[in-house]
């Protein structure tokens, strides 16, 4: 069965989407990712979509859902590497990915995740 690999990088999970996803594959990714967040106790998820040639309403909704589900599981999601043509098309389509953080590339995404998680662990432990 087709699968999108999920890599573990310390406290974070990295997903690089390199195929033109059909709808079931997107849903499967959503399932597996939420499972892995719990299993690995991950604090952040990076989704690299630099190889994606389009983001339509279905893929957009899947990304937003993943971010929302991850948040419930106490993990932050950053979508990185969206191509300019894809971004322009999404805006025209009316998609804005509310509640999803974005970054230019994996490196910047990592920085964002690190700073977010840093803030968390700096907080005083509950009394």
């Amino acid at each position: 069965m087709e699968q999108i690999p999920i890599l573990k990088l310390g406290k974070f999970l990295l997903v690089t989407i390199q195929v033109d996803m059909h709808d079931q594959l997107a849903l499967r990714l959503q399932d597996e990712l939420t499972n892995r967040i719990v299993k690995e106790n991950a604090k952040g998820v990076l989704i690299d979509i630099s190889a994606l040639e389009i983001v339509d309403s279905f893929i957009g909704r899947t990304l937003a859902n993943i971010a929302a589900m991850a948040r419930i599981l106490d993990a932050e999601t950053v979508v990185v590497g969206m191509q300019p043509a894809v971004a322009i098309t999404m805006v025209e389509l009316g998609l804005s990915l509310p509640g999803v953080r974005t970054a230019l590339n994996v490196e910047r995404g990592m920085e964002i995740l690190s700073s977010l998680v840093q803030v968390d662990s700096d907080a005083p432990p509950p009394a």
Partner: peptide, 12 residues
């Protein structure tokens, strides 16, 4: 406004 939104989607 669209340019700003598109840039935001890209992370800028």
């Amino acid at each position: 406004i669209k340019t700003v939104s598109a840039a935001r989607l890209m992370g800028a």
